[in-house]
């Protein structure tokens, strides 16, 4: 029961944050140009014979491709973590292990 309440609390907070983001994005989009909002493209809206691919219909299902994005993410995280650890080490601020917050 306690766990269900915790999960509900997490979801409520997530919905509140998500709702704020949603409101901000839709307000800024409709505020600048009402024509930006449009219906989701349906199959057949665009010719898919290779002549034209709209930017929002990039085909990700061409088969397995080299995971460059995965490597990019790993590099970003590694660089940020290394810089952070070196900065804290340089300033002599030893960060304690925090197992309960991981």
């Amino acid at each position: 029961m306690k766990t269900i309440l915790k999960i509900l609390l997490i979801l409520v907070v997530a919905v509140m944050i998500g709702g704020t983001f949603y409101g901000a994005v839709t307000a800024s989009s409709s505020g600048t140009d009402g024509t930006i909002l449009q219906e989701r493209p349906q199959p057949g809206d665009f010719p898919l014979d290779g002549e034209f691919t709209p930017p929002d219909r990039e085909d990700f299902d061409d088969g397995v491709q080299f995971p460059a994005e995965m490597i990019k993410s790993l590099v970003i995280m590694t660089v940020v973590a290394t810089v952070y650890l070196n900065i804290t080490k340089y300033f002599g601020r030893k960060k304690p292990a925090m197992p309960t917050s991981l």
């Binding site: 993410s73 970003i76 995280m77 590694t78 660089v79 940020v80 973590a81 290394t82 952070y84 650890l85 804290t88 960060k95 304690p96 292990a97 925090m98 197992p99 917050s101 991981l102």
Partner: peptide
């Protein structure tokens, strides 16, 4: 937001690096 999350995740891992290594 994906790029921001990757940066924050790097910081998150760095914050807990000692715990990860010790485990």
């Amino acid at each position: 937001s994906t790029n921001i999350t990757m940066i924050l995740m790097g910081l998150h891992v760095a914050q807990h690096w000692n715990w990860i290594v010790s485990m």
